[in-house]
């Protein structure tokens, strides 16, 4: 049905218009991100601080002469304990930042008061979450590169695997990590508060996925739980690609699991978003602080 009232709207719906709207959301997020100077701390200081806690603990436990490290190498098969820890903590920080950043994206808009004005436009609403992911991916890529540079520079960590395969593991991990973030974003809008859920998820990742130790050290039931968490495969795959010179065939079991988790979490994230959207129209949750 065509509208008959004048003046006629200037809007021209279509796929290209939706793409332009998506790009506008990405640009908006990037512009706002740059205008908070705290991003310098987030990108340069954080990559060092968090792994340092585990690295210093490992140094203390290995003894004054570092003889204990031989035990670590025997258990993990990794000769570079710093690189081993850095991969685990970086994956943990990636998931943690996505939960806070993407997970709270809509909630932050809601508290600012801008969520309703976005919701009032004819743009496909899932774009608001997808658009938020764009700058997040850029900053996370920078975060991971800076981590690699800083640990190479200050701790002499050298990567002896294929950087392209390491990049492939990262790319294949994106749907699972961000799908979980999308699911969170919808829950946060509905529940208004989800800090305890974030603490729970990152605690589970910390304990079950072996961020500083091999999963094989865990009791059997904990290992079973670990197999249901995508971060386990991300950490395992990244370590193998970056430090164990693994081939594509070696990495395939991890990549396959990550792809399956990606399909699951993206689908769940989208379905939860649709559910939240419908529920918000019934309850008015979008406009509530």
């Amino acid at each position: 049905m065509e509208a008959t009232l004048s003046p006629q709207s200037l809007g021209r719906p279509g796929f290209i218009s939706d793409l332009r709207a998506f790009w506008a959301i990405v640009r908006r997020e990037w512009t706002i991100f740059k205008r908070y100077p705290s991003w310098i701390i987030a990108l340069f200081i954080w990559p060092l601080i968090f792994p340092m806690m585990y690295i210093l603990t490992a140094r203390a436990l290995s003894g004054i002469d570092g003889s204990g490290l031989a035990v670590f190498t025997k258990t993990t098969g990794a000769s570079n304990f710093i690189g081993y820890i850095v991969v685990g903590t970086t994956v943990w920080m990636w998931q943690n930042i996505v939960l806070w950043d993407v997970g709270f994206a809509l909630r932050n808009e809601q508290m600012r008061g801008t969520l309703e004005s976005n919701w009032l436009s004819p743009t496909w609403r899932f774009s608001y979450l997808l658009g938020h992911t764009g700058p997040q991916l850029i900053t996370m890529t920078m975060f991971i590169l800076i981590t690699a540079l800083e640990f190479g520079l200050f701790f002499g960590v050298r990567f002896n695997g294929s950087p392209w395969l390491a990049l492939l593991v990262m790319l294949v991990s994106v749907p699972a990590i961000y799908g979980l973030g999308f699911a969170f974003a919808s829950i946060v809008i509905t529940a208004k508060e989800a800090h305890t859920f974030v603490f729970l998820v990152r605690g589970l990742v910390m304990i079950f996925c072996g961020i500083t130790f091999p999963v094989s050290l865990l009791p059997g039931w904990m290992q079973t739980i670990a197999t249901w968490m995508p971060q386990t495969y991300m950490i395992h795959g990244m370590r193998a690609a970056a430090f164990a010179n693994a081939s594509f065939a070696d990495l395939w079991p991890d990549l396959r699991a990550l792809l399956l988790f990606g399909v699951f979490w993206l689908t769940l994230g989208y379905l939860l978003f649709r559910w939240m959207e419908r529920r918000a129209r019934r309850t008015g949750a979008i406009g509530q602080y």
């Binding site: 709207s9 200037l10 809007g11 021209r12 719906p13 279509g14 218009s17 939706d18 332009r20 709207a21 790009w23 506008a24 959301i25 640009r27 908006r28 512009t31 706002i32 205008r35 908070y36 600012r112 008061g113 801008t114 309703e116 004005s117 976005n118 009032l120 436009s121 004819p122 743009t123 406009g287």
Partner: peptide, 27 residues
Amino acid sequence: LAGERSIYWKLTGRENLEYFAALYHIP
């Protein structure tokens, strides 16, 4: 709706309008 809170304070006036123009599918 929600008056002054409905726009982004960390964007300029022009950036706000350009952003919302894209959301409303204006070429």
